[in-house]
Computed example of a mutant assay.
Amino acid sequence: MTAISNTTSLNSSSARRFLNEVVNPLKWSKLWERQRLRAYDRHTPTTTSLLDQPTRIVDTASFLSAYRAIFEDEIYAFKPADQTPSIIDGGANVGLATLYWKKKWPEADVTAFEPDPQVFEVLEWNCNQHGYPDVNLIQKGLWSKNGTLQFDPDGADAGQVRNNHTATGKGRDDTESVRVVRLAKFLDQPIDLLKLDIEGAESEVLLDCEGALDTVENLFVEYHSYIDREQRVDEVLRVLRDSGFRIHIQPELVADQPFVQRLESYGMDHRLNIFAYRNE
C-alpha cells in the first residue's frame, strides 16, 4: 500500500508540474511576446510587456538578447553586503541592467550613464515607469577626461564615442557631439558593482582609472575587439590584475578554427565578457 501511495503521489506531482508548464498563462504570454518582437525590423522602437511594467525599447533584437542575458541567465547577479548596494551602470542603454538591480534591491544606489540622447530619453522613461525615479541618470559617455566627443549612434545598443583611439575610419556622416566624463571621479566611495559596456571605450577608461579601482568590489567589462583597431585586451587585464582582482572570462564570438576562420560581427572580430572580483 505504501508503494502504491508513493507512486500515486509521484505521478500526481509530476502531473501538476506538467500542467503548470503547459497551462501557465504567464509562460505562454511571454512566448507570444517574444514571437511578436522577433517579427519587428531592426531599429524599430516599440513597447514590450516582458517585464512587469510596460517597457520601451529601441531595437527588438538587441533587447531580446539583453533580456535573456540579464533577466533569465542573470549575468549581472552578485552578492552585496547589504540591501543597499552601490552600483555604476556604464553604458546603460534603455536600462535593463539598472531595472534588474533595482527589482532585486529597491534601495540600491544606482548611477547610470548613457550618452545617446534618443536612448537616454527611453532609459529615463523606463526608470520612471517602473517606479525608480531615484536612479541617478547621467546623459554622458564615460571617457578618460571631461569634455565633448563625436558619437556614432547605432539605433540599438552599439553606439560609440570616437577619437583617435576609437574611430572606425568608416566615414560615417551621422555622428553627433556628446558630453563625456571621467569615470575615476565617481570611484571615491565603495562601489559594489561597476559595469562597463561602453563599446570600445573600456580600455581608455580603465587605464585612466588605474590606481582608483580599490573601491570597487565587483567589476564587469565587455571588451570589444574591432577589426580596424589595435587590440588592447592585455592592457585591460593588466589593470584589473594590478588592482587586485581575480578574473573570469567568457568569450562571446568563438571561432571553431581561429587560424582559418575570421569572424566579424558589427565590425568586431572578438568580444569578451570579463568578470573581475575580489577574493572572499
Rank of each mutant, 00 (worst) to 15 (best):
T111M: 15
G211N: 10
D152R: 15
R229I: 04
D173W: 05
V180M: 09
W125V: 07
A167R: 12
T215S: 15
E121Q: 14
G200R: 04
D242E: 15
D197S: 01
V119C: 10
D116M: 04
P133E: 07
L194R: 00
V161W: 03
P190I: 03
I247N: 09
T111R: 13
G147P: 05
N164M: 11
H224V: 09
Y132T: 03
D154I: 08
D197Y: 01
V119G: 07
V119P: 02
D154W: 12
A112M: 08
D197W: 00
T111K: 12
E217G: 06
Y226S: 07
A156F: 01
A156P: 02
T175Y: 06
Q189D: 10
A184N: 02
P115W: 04
G131F: 08
E217S: 13
D157F: 15
V181N: 00
A184P: 00
I227Q: 14
Q129H: 08
C127W: 00
E114T: 04
L196G: 01
P251W: 11
Q189E: 15
V233C: 13
T175P: 00
D234N: 13
P190M: 08
Y223P: 02
P251H: 12
D157Y: 14
G147N: 10
D228M: 14
V216F: 06
L207P: 00
R232S: 06
E121D: 15
W125S: 11
L240A: 10
I249R: 06
R182M: 07
